[in-house]
Amino acid sequence: MPEILLDGKGYALADGETVLDALTRGGAAVPSSCRSGVCQTCLMRAVEGSIPAESQKGLKGTLQARGYFLACQCMPGGTLRVERPGAEAGRLSATVRAITPLNRDIVSVALECSDMGDYRAGQFINVFKDGTVSRSYSLASAPGIDPHLTLHVRKVAEGRVSGWIHETLRVGDTVAISQPLGECFYLPSDPEQPLLLLGTGSGLAPLYGIIRDALRHGHRGPIHLYHGSRHKDGLYLTDELHALAREHASVQYHPCVSREEPSGDLRRGRVVDLALGDLTALAGWRVFLCGHPDMVQSARKRLYLAGASLKDMYADAFIRSAA
């Protein structure tokens, strides 16, 4: 039976187990979150033995070349000696500069991280509560506009990381975070292309960064933002977004509620239904989708059938945590 060797101890790898399964079962403290090969929290480095190519999918070439792999995606054929990721794999230290409520369930967390190089609005980072527990949060900030990295953290029932952020974390605290990750961001490739941004709940975070980043890059095509929540009190940043739409004739902002009668300028319905009703044909549009995974999956399919091209649809990597 193949073994995983870590910190001088051996962990037997049972049939069908990943490296993460074997280490966790054996009591080793290995951070993990999505367990789907997306969040890169369980990054490890192989120093002896061979790792399957699937376990390096999505990693930067420089990390791949040094033997880094994702423990949750790795089912090796033989014995493997592994170690925890070093500083070069991008664990960074950040200082909390502000914690501001955005609505009843969501706070904005501003982080200062002098070691973080370039990032793109719409990417995400992992926030580590301790040595093993972390969660991915999209960046709501945009480089060149916001002084700090900003996250929108919704308090999840019994959420270990969101609960800690809401209740324990204080301004001035130091937290460990990852390098920015993910491919859901704006590219100034075609400034005339119409943009459709659909988000639910705290899925507004990356869209709030992307929309301001696009405008900063001089995007001229129409930009339609639909932000949805069940109830009115789930919406947030409404004043800021209305102001953005007033300042830029190209921007249309549609706050939507699905479970109550709308008042004022609110619209009643789900974001995908309303967007498809307004726009009908989406050939040539660039689309950004962020929020609940079921919404993202179904929206992707429906917008594609309405003419949006697969290569022009960007979705954030939010996945309900398995850990």
């Binding site: 999956q297 594609y304 697969l310 290569k311």
Partner: peptide, 28 residues
């Protein structure tokens, strides 16, 4: 091929006679 995939896969997904065979949730 890239241009054709976009058009072809949309036709197939929109056709109720065959789209049941293509119902993998992972569109990529």
């Amino acid at each position: 091929v890239n241009a054709a995939v976009d058009i072809f896969y949309r036709k197939v997904l929109a056709d109720d006679r065959v789209n049941g065979f293509f119902d993998d949730v992972d569109m990529d």
